[in-house]
């Protein structure tokens, strides 16, 4: 075993050179890369941890939000159901009111038609009755009745408070001496004298009397002074009676309609309740 001292020294130098080479090309770059990788991994882990923490916070937040939402939804559902129920009741009530209003209108129309019909029937009945009466009186009329009629007419004229007498006095105020008497039958001389006497008394002067026989006049006597006519006939009574009966019928009709409408309205209000 022999040591070559030159080789010994050269090997030491070689070894030192190798240390330098490896330090430059191996340890330096490798350690640097490892350190940088460690740093980046550490950074990533820290980032991941912070993100995980953040995600957990977010999840917790959403969990609480969801539970709050569930509770709120139940409340809302109940409120909506109550609203819908109330709305349903309201709509039903409105529909019922509409139906009742239409029904009332319908009833009113029916009542009106019925009343109109009754009115028409009554009117016809009254008219027929009056015409029948007039025909009967016309058939009964004769000279005796005429005489009686003249007597009644004169009675009216002789009473200064009577309406006929007043009309006659008014008619004479601006009239001349000519007077025409119309009657269904020809007047007797006695009747003519009695009439002339009474008329002259009302006129206050003498009069020229002429008579006209008119069968169309019916039962009664008319005095024509200038353009005005003062008379007493059974037709006037009959027309007065007709007017009175028709007026009564109208009043009945109005009363009945008012009663029907108020009855229908009260019925509708009862149903609505």
């Amino acid at each position: 075993m022999q040591i070559d001292w030159f080789t010994f020294g050269a090997q030491i130098v070689n070894f030192l050179i190798l240390i330098g080479l490896l330090k430059r090309f191996l340890y330096g770059p490798i350690l640097d890369a490892m350190d940088r990788r460690q740093a980046s991994i550490r950074d990533r882990i820290a980032e991941a941890e912070s993100k995980q923490e953040e995600a957990e916070q977010e999840a917790e937040k959403y969990r609480s939000l969801q539970s709050a939402f569930e509770a709120h939804r139940a409340e809302r559902m109940q409120a909506v159901e109550e609203d819908a129920e109330a709305r349903r009741h309201e709509l039903l009530a409105r529909a019922r009111e509409d139906v009742e209003y239409l029904e009332a209108q319908w009833r009113e129309a029916i009542e009106r038609d019925r009343a109109d019909f009754l009115h028409t029937v009554s009117e016809r009945a009254v008219t027929e009755t009056i015409q029948l009466t007039r025909r009967v009186l016309d058939d009964l009329a004769d000279v005796d009745l005429e005489d009686q009629l003249v007597t009644v007419f004169l009675g009216h004229l002789q009473n200064p408070e009577d309406a006929l007498a007043k009309k006659l006095i008014d008619a004479f105020e601006d009239a001349d001496a000519e007077v025409t008497i119309r009657s269904a039958y020809e007047l007797s001389d006695d009747q003519r004298e009695r009439l002339l006497e009474v008329l002259e008394k009302r006129a206050g002067h003498s009069l020229t009397l002429s008579t006209v026989t008119d069968r169309e006049l019916g039962l009664g006597v008319e005095v024509q002074v200038a353009n005005r006519t003062v008379g007493w006939t059974i037709d006037q009574y009959i027309e007065q009676l007709l007017d009175e009966m028709l007026r009564q019928l109208e009043a009945d009709l109005d009363q009945r309609l008012t009663a029907d409408v108020s009855a229908t309205g009260s019925m509708a209000s009862v149903r609505h309740r």
Binding site: M1, Q2, I3, D4, T7, F8, G9, Q11, I12, F15, L16
Partner: peptide, 11 residues
């Protein structure tokens, strides 16, 4: 060679 180990040991 004994030279190399001795040289390394000297280091």
């Amino acid at each position: 060679s004994v030279t190399t180990p001795i040289a390394l040991a000297m280091c």
